[in-house]
Design a protein around this nucleic acid. Structure first.
Lengths: 265, 265
DNA sequence: CAGTGGTCTAGACCACTGG
DNA sequence: CAGTGGTCTAGACCACTGC
């Protein structure tokens, strides 16, 4: 909090010897950014768990000795980044993949307009779930230490009984001890919600690389398709707080009855 | 501005008979939203053209008889929607597809990491540019009146001498009178920038539907590819102000040397 | 009703830009 | 230097939620 918290004389005209007394703080960022960092740290530490309410703006303002507006701006940014959710008259809550009305936040595949069928809770079939050594590229992408193990999970998602997505997840073993096919199978709602509640891992943002590919023979069998229909290859890297990568997900999407929908701003 | 502008007694405690005196205004939206609408109207009317500076926050505050903070919040939202761009110490400018450092805002195709080659100013080859009747679906998507004509433009974009994108644009003829292949060919920078400067059409947001497809014979010839490599089909609808659709763009992307990159939040 | 987020103000000062 | 956007405050009131 820099000079602010230190020199508890809030309104003197020239108390701004900002330079000399900052020791460890990033040496000059706006107050609301510092508040934001503090809140972020709290979220990361788990001071408030997903779905819970954080303290009111007023309380935070008092706690940090700043005005409501400053806290507000910090919260504004965090809620814009989908880390917090404001609910007027109620409070500000830690965002979660659970709510969203079973909305799959990172899944951009939707049914074609011709046949409107909502994509809702898909049927999931776990093909395998095993702990083994990562490929070099996965190890690098997940920033793993040497000899770390990862979970390899393969599953098929069906919409309206049509096998539509084949995906391979790769998760750092350290962060998901005790994962199992049963758990994944029986979990209702988004898999990312399970990660939150059971393993305390919150995916905050993700990045996808999309290409068109042809299915291998194996893929044809798994998705029950002809070898001549092209698929969308979607490689996703998901990140937790601090931009730490926590999942690699390589998926193949059928796009004859669905499409990947993207909004550009 | 509702009761505000009307009852020029800003600080009386209970001057809030909001109901009875509003006549045409949306009957109760926050002040900053109203300001935002006014600014939007100005942008739409062309009070300030793309790249130009809009009046300072202070001036707008005076003009609308509100405080700086209120104008600020309106501008905040507009700049977050990429309609305005703030430049500290200079002013607030109308966003444009021209600047962005030749950034192609709506083009998400980037080179694969293996071979880092920036995608910059692509080579463009216009195959045709003709005015004709729209397909029913295009006519509907563009909300055209019956018997309207549209421009059909086909072109190939090459990156590093590799024909990579084949795209068909469909533009309402009324809004682009005098368009020609030469103009498109010779235009440097983003095509959307040309639309702004020459035709006063600002694309504000867009929506894409992505699928995997196989090339037709014709496409193989045009892109100089084998018939067995799958392509990304990207159908884009672009919108101007007021969510009016102004372009349909159906493109096929090669994804063997590039990929579609998407950020999820 | 009390408590929460949401809006708005008036005024101060800071940081950056350019002449 | 003057002018711009950026930060911050203290305090007011509104709108919504739930008891």
């Amino acid at each position: 909090m820099q000079d602010r918290a230190a020199s508890s004389a809030p309104l003197e005209p020239n108390d701004s010897q900002v330079v000399s007394l900052g020791d460890k703080v990033p040496l000059f960022s706006p107050l609301y950014q510092q508040i934001k960092s503090l809140l972020l740290k709290g979220l990361e530490k788990g001071d408030w768990r997903p779905g819970e309410m954080i303290p009111s703006e007023m309380e935070l303002a008092q706690r940090f000795q700043v005005s409501q507006g400053t806290v507000r701006k910090a919260i504004d940014e965090l809620s814009q980044e989908n880390l917090l959710v404001r609910k007027q008259g109620k409070g500000t809550y830690v965002a979660t993949h659970s709510e969203h009305g079973a909305q799959y936040r990172f899944l951009k595949l939707v049914a074609n307009p011709e046949k409107p069928q909502y994509i809702g809770p898909a049927k999931r079939e776990i093909l395998w779930c095993k702990l083994s050594s990562p490929s070099p590229s996965d190890a690098q992408a997940l920033q793993l230490k040497p000899d770390s193990k990862v979970w390899h999970i393969r599953r098929i998602l069906s919409f309206a009984s049509l096998p539509t997505i084949l995906e391979d997840l790769c998760l750092p073993g350290d962060a998901f001890v005790g994962l199992s096919a049963q758990e994944l199978q029986h979990n209702q709602g988004p898999t990312y919600a399970l990660f939150e509640t059971k393993y305390g891992v919150r995916m905050v943002r993700a990045q996808e690389q999309i290409r068109a590919t042809m299915p291998t023979q194996e893929v044809c069998q798994l998705l029950n398709i002809e070898p001549n229909i092209p698929l969308l290859s979607v490689e996703r890297t998901s990140f937790t707080y601090q931009d730490v990568p926590m999942e690699i997900r390589r998926a193949l999407y059928r796009t004859d009855h669905h499409h990947y929908k993207n909004e550009l701003n």
